[in-house]
Amino acid sequence: MPIWFDEREYAVVRAAVDRLIPPFEDHPGAVACGATDYVDGLLGAFLVDPPRVFAGGPFSGRHGGDAGFARFTPLTKHQELAWRTRIEGSLGIPEREFNGPVVGLQERYRAGIAALGADFGDLDGNEQDHRLAAAPGFKTLLYEHACEGTYGAPEYGGNRDARAWAAIRFPGDIQPRGYTDEEVSGRD
């Protein structure tokens, strides 16, 4: 269940990230990794407390230690100002507009989804590529988020079960295990 998108918006974003990072051989692709949920979690970061902006620590539990990444870190006052402004936009609030108005990610997604069209998921690949190319700013934004949601830590909602890391042969976070001297110096 998405926390910020409605079902229709979620479907458009899902189809778009699938086109940007598709499955290929052992690569599961952005959708199977949960990149759509990553974006949904970012746009709805302030719907939970503490906000889902910075995963905690010091370890994830994947290589020993406890699952500290899952306990998100409370934001400082300035971090909250920055991330609320980045996500919600400045909305005419003076303390967010010291260098002028800021268009937030939520608004950019609403506009971008509208530009791709409600029927985006039903189009063939070529037509999807045309629609994405006609919205270059949104395509770049969505692509960067698709990357974060595919290859970032799973605690942010994407990279489900660390599947992308397994596919690209990257162990991800490795503390407190680390690597042995032989693993550092030897040929694989």
Binding site: G56, G57, P58, F69, A153, Q175
Partner: peptide, 15 residues
């Protein structure tokens, strides 16, 4: 230490 320093590319590089 405070436990805030982590192997997390999203947190340290992207955010």
């Amino acid at each position: 230490g405070l436990g805030d320093i982590t192997n997390d590319e999203v947190k340290f590089v992207r955010r």
